[in-house]
């Protein structure tokens, strides 16, 4: 009797088990729908982000059709399709003064900015890292961050305080030294440097962060060993710090190079009042595009932007490849 009930119980349990197992199996064979059901909540979460992404990043890609049209304000997206004519015109015009200038400025401003900012930021990082006093270090680092949080329009006012012809501090100092003042806002030549310097002022403290984070991971013993061998501060910097963070330095340099085609038109539009006198050195693709907004040149300006984006993308992908080759994780 007892035995029977036990076996019945066992059978029941076994049956229950198979019953319990069945739906699981069914869910598995039920395929991706059921699986997606489990993740429904996650997909719901993606909706707001995806909606904005599609609206403001991917739909505009469709608007790139403008690059292949003779844009007409009234016809909008239905403007006359002219194929690659815009691109051909740009390439033909690239030999003309204006187009040549725009491409040249875009690239040269970037190169000068990287060439000046990169080593100085690295040097600042070394100095910040070598400050042993905690309070001095954190205060100095704090001060170096401040400019990063100031808008380009405010920086423009500050640049004016330095560069203004009659009231600017630089000209005041030049006068005191018995020199002639410079009319900065009508002299095109120094502007590549002025843009590099203002970029440096704004981004310097921020730029050091990544290096300092890397330096904090260096083994203290290496410094002790170097000090035992009689290495001074400079020697420690060149023989311990820099080699230890070489991968981060390379990474940063490669990423910078990938961004050569990017123009900081926000900076230029803010700092440079719209005068034709210095446009020959500060007109870049982004600035030119802005002036074509709602105008007849919209098609060709979009085409220029597309050329810029594509070259930029190729450079970034290329840079990413190199980063991966050097045993770093890469960004894509």
């Amino acid at each position: 009797m007892k035995e029977e009930t036990r076996t019945q119980e066992e059978q029941g349990a076994a049956a229950r088990q198979t019953q319990a197992r069945l739906p699981v199996r069914r869910r598995k064979t039920g395929g991706k729908l059921a699986l997606a059901g489990k993740y429904k909540g996650l997909y719901l979460m993606l909706i707001p982000g995806l909606a904005l992404l599609i609206l403001f990043h991917y739909l505009p890609l469709g608007g790139l059709v403008t690059a292949f049209q003779d844009y007409d304000i009234f016809d909008g997206y239905y403007s006359e399709f002219i194929g690659l004519k815009n691109f051909r015109n740009i390439l033909l015009a690239a030999t003309s003064d204006k187009m040549y200038q725009i491409f040249r400025n875009t690239i040269f401003i970037s190169i000068i900015r990287i060439a000046t900012n990169f080593p100085i930021i690295l040097a600042l990082a070394l100095v910040v890292y070598s400050i042993r006093n905690k309070y001095v270090r954190s205060i100095f680092q704090g001060i170096s961050f401040i400019p990063y949080f100031i808008s380009w329009t405010a920086v423009s006012g500050m640049a004016f305080a330095l560069l203004s012809t009659d009231t600017g501090l630089i000209n005041t100092v030049l006068h005191m030294l018995g020199q002639e003042g410079v009319r900065w806002y009508t002299t095109p030549d120094p502007w590549w440097l002025i843009l590099a310097v203002t970029s440096l002022w704004k981004g310097m403290g921020w730029g050091t962060l990544i290096y300092i984070a890397a330096m904090c991971n260096i083994d203290e013993e290496l410094y002790e060993a170097c000090a035992l061998d009689g290495g001074g501060v400079l020697r420690q910097a060149f023989h311990v710090t820099l080699p230890s963070i070489m991968s981060v330095i390379c990474l940063q340099l490669i990423l910078d190079t990938g961004n050569i085609m990017k123009d900081n038109y926000e900076q230029i539009l803010a700092l440079v009042p719209d005068s034709t006198a210095i446009n020959e050195t500060v007109e870049v693709i982004g600035k030119y595009t802005y002036t074509q907004l709602n105008g007849p040149g919209m098609g060709s300006a979009t085409a220029m932007g597309l050329i810029q984006s594509i070259i930029g993308l190729i450079l970034v992908l290329f840079a990413n490849k190199i980063v991966k080759k050097t045993d770093n994780e890469g960004i894509l």
């Binding site: 993606l46 403001f56 469709g62 595009t289 919209m298 979009t302 932007g305 810029q308």
Partner: peptide, 26 residues
């Protein structure tokens, strides 16, 4: 499912954008 695809959608937008005029038109 589609984790990689969605991640790509987001990351790609950082490296390639249509630019000022198409965004303005949208």
């Amino acid at each position: 499912p589609l984790h990689k695809f969605f991640n790509f959608l987001f990351v790609f937008s950082m490296f390639f954008n249509a630019g000022m005029i198409p965004t303005y038109l949208i």
